[in-house]
Design a protein around this nucleic acid. Structure first.
Lengths: 153, 153
DNA sequence: TGGGCTAACATGGGAACACATGGGCGTCAA
DNA sequence: TTGACGCCCATGTGTTCCCATGTTAGCCCA
């Protein structure tokens, strides 16, 4: 079960968004009660997931010895900046102000599946990100295939 | 269950602070009656937690041979300087003067979750710490991924 | 193949609840 | 006696739950 596809949703008057049903199904299978979310470090986006995402973060933190500076930093940046969001019976979440500000989200959200996690963008932020990603991917592919990039997509 | 997210709270006229409900839930699950707290070793902050934090401190102390100077120092700094704080029926604690002085706390506290423990800062102290952590983390990440940013965000 | 039906999903709003906060009072110890 | 501390109750605010509605997509049947 992976998070897959891109879906747009609106925020209602109370600031709630429905998590796409397909994403909810993955979370349920994952067994995490609710949704774990944190701001992306170098993107105007939010990253969210369940136990699998959390396990990855734990692994990252666990690589450093207790009381080391690196561990403190990572724990602060990843765990301190994150939130455990509750999902209401209808499958919605309320985004904290802090998160909305980071991603530039006002009244609409784009959910983007990334396998073990998914991202939340503002529609504008997503358009920008998509354009940039395409450009980078083209460059990467060119470097892989050795030139024209005229291969199978 | 881990301590996660960053929450600000005010001290009332009696010098009490509400422990955020999400943190209280973790402490309860941990089974520790009350709250274990000590000044952070190299930060103007306080560290708090329950049994998991105590276990980690024990582990840290245990790494040094009995009667060694290092062991004495660490045990004194962590255990000697620590307090067991009682939590009132509303989930509040009263911070000892000594602790407030160490962290520069006057009338507001920022709680920062770090997984197995959480920290208490003054709002100003937190802002400074956050800025520093972000900068250092970026440097650390660059050294890890080799600069492309092609890693976990 | 087309129309209608049904179920799942996204959305909206009202009411109950939990939480953070504030203050009063009794109790214990210096 | 006095101060500090712990317990109790009160209150405002934000959040969560519950129920209602519109919309979409899939399905069945003619």
């Amino acid at each position: 079960m992976r998070f897959v596809s891109t879906i747009q949703a609106r925020l209602d008057g109370k600031g709630r968004v429905s998590i796409p049903a397909s994403f909810r199904a993955v979370l349920e299978a994952d067994g995490y009660p609710g949704l774990f979310m944190h701001p992306a470090l170098d993107l105007p986006a939010l990253e969210a997931g369940g136990n699998r995402l959390l396990a990855e973060i734990d692994g990252l933190i666990g690589r450093y010895p207790p009381y080391s500076e690196a561990r403190d930093l990572i724990a602060t940046a990843l765990l301190g900046a994150s939130e455990h969001l509750k999902v209401d019976p209808e499958g919605r979440i309320a985004l904290p102000e802090r998160f909305k500000a980071h991603a530039g989200i006002t009244n609409a959200v784009v959910f983007v599946g990334l396998g073990d996690r998914f991202r939340l963008f503002s529609p504008d932020g997503f358009a920008a990100q998509e354009a940039e990603a395409k450009a980078k991917l083209r460059a990467l592919k060119a470097s892989l295939t050795g030139g024209t990039g005229a291969g199978t997509s």
